[in-house]
């Protein structure tokens, strides 16, 4: 899809105060139930994404000699990849689809609950509800279709999550001093851009996120082979029948 016309999120962990209004606003808009949790020794709660929790703030402690109290709050959610591994692997038409703003949304009715999408996702994002149907951030597809910002971006008090035109957000990030923005080119451009001051791995993100190689191989080689193979076998059989013909049982011909 035309990368320039895409809408995106710009997430700036250095601005995040860990208030987790984003987690709550998302649940409020999508009418998702609360999750019973327990204290695991960190304010990160729940520990990871869930079928009823489409985004979380990851709490990353990074003490160093320079700054013994440095900690980072990093939003984790669907990255709305340009080259989406979930869409690639999905066998059900229309179950996962691209909105006109560039988001990867889903239709639970068309989803067949095969649960392949999380295996195709470089970021381990999709989760599954009690019927096995996919559940993840859909960039508030119903809000953005009406020109509103996603609930998380609307609620964020510090501007750590902002929503807007992709090019504009990239320009602002660069102007704010972020030489490189995570997601600018990765996976044909991520819908969720991250303004990192340090290397991505400091924030717990993959340096080189990619759709799993087996899925790429399947898509590029095995899929075409399914048609070429069967077509070739049928064509070779017809060719053989015409060129050489059947094994007849007359004496002195093909059998001893």
């Amino acid at each position: 899809m035309s990368i320039a016309n895409r809408k995106s999120l710009l997430i700036s962990p250095e601005l995040c105060i860990g208030c987790r209004g984003c987690q709550t606003a998302c649940k409020s808009w999508n009418q998702l139930p609360g999750q019973k949790t327990k204290n695991t020794g960190t304010v990160q709660n729940p520990p990871d994404l869930l079928p009823n929790t489409f985004n979380i703030i990851r709490y990353v402690e990074m003490p160093s000699e320079k700054d013994a109290m440095r900690w980072l709050f990093v939003s984790r959610r669907c990255m709305h990849c340009g080259d989406a591994g979930c869409m690639k692997i999905c066998p059900a038409p229309g179950a996962l689809y691209r909105t006109k703003e560039g988001a990867v949304a889903y239709n639970k009715e068309k989803c067949i609950a095969c649960k392949l999408c999380v295996a195709g996702c470089p970021f381990d994002v999709p989760r599954y509800d009690e019927k096995g149907k996919v559940a993840k951030c859909h960039l508030c597809f119903d809000r953005i279709a009406e020109g509103l910002a996603p609930a998380c971006a609307k609620t964020c008090p510090t501007g750590a999550i902002r929503y807007g035109e992709r090019d504009a957000l990239l320009g602002e990030a660069k102007k704010a001093g972020y030489a490189k923005v995570y997601g600018e080119m990765e996976l044909e451009g991520l819908g969720a851009l991250y303004a990192f001051k340090d290397a991505p791995k400091v924030y717990g993100m993959d340096e080189k996120p990619a759709v799993p190689e087996s899925v790429v191989f399947w898509h590029k080689v095995l899929k075409p082979l399914a048609y070429i193979g069967v077509g070739g076998a049928v064509a070779a059989s017809l060719l053989h029948y015409v060129a050489i013909g059947p094994k007849k049982d007359e004496e002195g011909k093909k059998d001893e």
Binding site: S214, W218, G232, A233
Partner: peptide, 20 residues
């Protein structure tokens, strides 16, 4: 799941050649 997905599709390609 990824290993199985790959194996499932490799076997499929083999069979749709062999059976015709």
């Amino acid at each position: 799941v990824l290993i199985s997905h790959l194996l499932h599709n490799v076997s499929f390609d083999l069979m749709v050649v062999a059976i015709p």
